[in-house]
């Protein structure tokens, strides 16, 4: 499985993290530390661009919900954008689409933050 490469793009008060690769138990800590860093610098408006994400484990998805919840406590959010059908299926199976905000493109997600 490919490692996950994370590229950060900053747009005003928003941070877009472009994810490229796989997120499993071994590669998730990398995203976790990137998200923690944003939280420490009080940046709570985050969009995860999943267009190039090949795989995400259900445990990693669960952890993302934890991040979304903590962001919401700070009046922010963690939103997901551009999920592949395969990944959306996992999210839907777990019922997480009822908890996380999911968008088919990034602009939509940005507009939702405004």
């Amino acid at each position: 499985m490919r490692e996950c490469v994370i590229t950060r793009e900053q747009k005003d008060h928003l941070d877009i993290l472009h994810l490229d690769g796989s997120l499993d138990a071994y590669s998730f800590p990398k995203l976790e530390s990137a998200l923690n860093e944003l939280r420490e610098t009080k940046r709570h408006h985050v969009i995860l661009d999943c267009a190039s994400l090949d795989y995400i484990s259900s445990a990693a998805l669960g952890a993302l919900i934890g991040f979304a919840r903590r962001s919401r406590e700070q009046k922010g959010d963690l939103k997901l954008a551009r999920l592949s059908p395969k990944i959306f299926n996992i999210v839907e199976l777990l019922g997480f689409h009822k908890i996380l905000d999911i968008f088919s493109d990034i602009d939509q997600a940005i507009r939702k933050f405004a």
Binding site: G62, I65, L94, G95, F96, K98, I99
Partner: peptide
């Protein structure tokens, strides 16, 4: 339905 133990109780029950 949503997985147990991760959402608000209302969200879980209404789904």
């Amino acid at each position: 339905g949503i997985a147990i133990g991760i959402s608000e109780i209302e969200t879980f029950e209404s789904a």
